[in-house]
Write a protein that binds this DNA or RNA. Structure first.
Length: 479
DNA sequence: TGTTTGTTCTA
DNA sequence: AGAACAAAC
């Protein structure tokens, strides 16, 4: 009679879960656990919005386990290694099964867990699953990591073979009585109720993730290429928070798309446009894995002493609150605050505005997103912000500065997105919706809408000058 | 997956 | 006057 621990991490699902599957097939009983050790994840412990999601996701996972005769055990402590050693002693488990995680802190966590468990005669069995391909497989011919997306993409498409997801287990058999804490005791929910918008927007949990995937794959993928850049349209998959917590695996998404393609439900073009996004995620994980310092430092060392101004708290505050006076930026920042999510096109616009026009460090933006996004993912967030700031891998050229007025006109031509999120402009005529200064004197909209906090043209010129300087900084070195 | 500016062509 | 395009940042 053998017992194993199934340690759930960023894989809060029963479907397509290789660790769960292996534990069940190799042992008589299993103890499913979630370990909450935020100190170990610093300085990137889950932010407030992610914690909200995590709470509900754990509730859902617990319910799913109970439907199959199992139960999710909760432990809270300083280190996963110590908690696992305790659990093994308490249950007599000889092995711990978990998904390998590529975030630097989580990789460190699993190394120390493996060592500690070894010390008490138990083993840590790691399974791949966070990415479509194991990251060790995604290096160039000479063994060095990719730094440009397009070659990464070509290599990926050469290596990748779609495979079907594993089914969820029918029955979970547990040993008798293992003590547990309650999810509610982890204190993941906000103390003051700011989560109303999150509750009306999202339904965390694996079954909701599967429904979302199905809706996207049947109803929306065909138009994805056409409408994915329009924030007023529900045109993207909206799977990101589910994917972040592993309520759905990238393999489940890829397989569903693949099947649709085989069945000719969708065009190859639509499939590929979306699939590229999944591979961007793979690329982000690869970069994070090979360059773990890029969560806190610019990938391009020319930016090490970049003169981010420290004295523009007023601009940063306006940006966070969605009160910059630039409608598409404010709409995005308010969507983020209300729903814990922002359309990706708008993420690029607000990031370009913060880093280039305001000249504020990408890291400040990354931290704010980290705290407010329900899909905050270390790999994607770090890569996205460094890309926007122009200091990351395959980054936007320094002169690529989004003009928020132009971007608004291009991607929200009717101003629907702006009207939805910036109520002060609800009555503004279309001629003034993207550039309210044009209609301000005529009193055509709520005058409490803020004046622009800065002069776009002047700040653009300033950014060009400062960024041009970085070219004279010491050449980048990647260690 | 950029924006601006200047030039040329067309009406 | 305005579209289409190229070049520079």
């Amino acid at each position: 009679m053998t017992t194993a621990i199934v340690w759930f991490r960023n894989d809060l699902r029963l479907h397509d879960n290789p660790s769960l599957r292996a534990a069940l097939s190799e042992h008589d009983t299993v103890v499913p656990v979630y370990l909450w050790t935020p100190a170990e994840e610093q300085p990137w412990a889950p932010g407030a919005a992610s914690r909200w999601w995590l709470h509900h996701s754990l509730e859902q996972l617990g319910a799913e386990l109970e439907r199959r005769g199992g139960k999710l055990h909760i432990r809270h402590g300083q280190s996963a290694a110590a908690l696992l050693v305790d659990l093994c002693a308490e249950t007599g488990a000889s092995a711990v099964y978990a998904q390998r995680c590529y975030e630097p802190m989580l990789a460190k966590q699993e190394q120390s867990a493996a060592a500690k468990l070894n010390g008490v005669g138990a083993r840590l069995q790691l399974a791949e699953g966070q990415t479509l391909l194991p990251l060790r497989a995604s290096t160039k011919a000479d063994g060095s990591p990719f730094r440009v997306f397009t070659p990464f993409w070509r290599n990926f498409m050469k290596e990748y073979i779609p495979s079907p997801p594993l089914p969820a287990p029918i029955r979970i058999t547990m040993p008798q009585r293992v003590s547990t804490n309650y999810i509610a005791d982890l204190g993941l929910l906000p103390r003051i109720a700011w989560d109303g918008g999150l509750r009306e927007t999202w339904q965390p949990g694996a079954s909701s993730a599967l429904r979302a995937l199905d809706r996207f794959a049947t109803e929306r993928i065909e138009r994805y290429g056409k409408v994915r850049d329009l924030p007023a349209v529900v045109g993207t998959s909206r799977l990101s928070p589910h994917l972040r917590f592993g309520e759905i695996s990238p393999r489940q998404i890829a397989w569903r798309l693949w099947q649709g393609l085989q069945a000719k439900d969708i065009s190859a073009g639509a499939h590929e446009t979306y699939f590229r996004q999944l591979v961007w995620r793979e690329f982000a994980f690869s970069v994070l894995h090979h360059f773990p310092q890029t969560t806190d430092r610019p990938f391009n060392s020319r930016f090490n002493d970049f003169p981010w101004p420290m004295d523009r708290d007023d601009w940063f505050t306006s940006w966070r609150r969605g009160r910059t006076g630039f409608p598409i930026v404010d709409a995005g920042m308010r969507e983020l605050w209300h729903t814990g999510w922002m359309h990706n096109r708008v993420r690029m616009i607000v990031a370009s505005f913060l880093t280039k026009h305001c000249g504020i460090s990408w890291l400040a933006g990354a931290r704010w997103f980290w705290d407010t996004l329900v899909d905050a993912d270390l790999a994607n967030n770090s890569m996205g912000w460094q890309w926007s700031a122009g200091c990351g891998v395959d980054a936007a050229p320094y002169f690529r500065i989004f003009n928020p007025l132009r971007q608004g006109e291009r991607f929200d031509p009717k101003g629907e997105y702006i009207r939805r999120w910036v109520p002060e402009l609800r009555d503004a005529p279309i001629q003034a919706i993207h550039d309210p200064q044009r209609g301000r004197s005529k009193g055509l909209f709520d005058a409490t809408y803020p004046e622009p906090i800065l002069d776009l043209d002047e700040r653009r010129q300033h950014a060009l000058a400062v960024y041009r300087e970085t070219r004279h900084h010491p050449a980048p070195r990647h260690v």
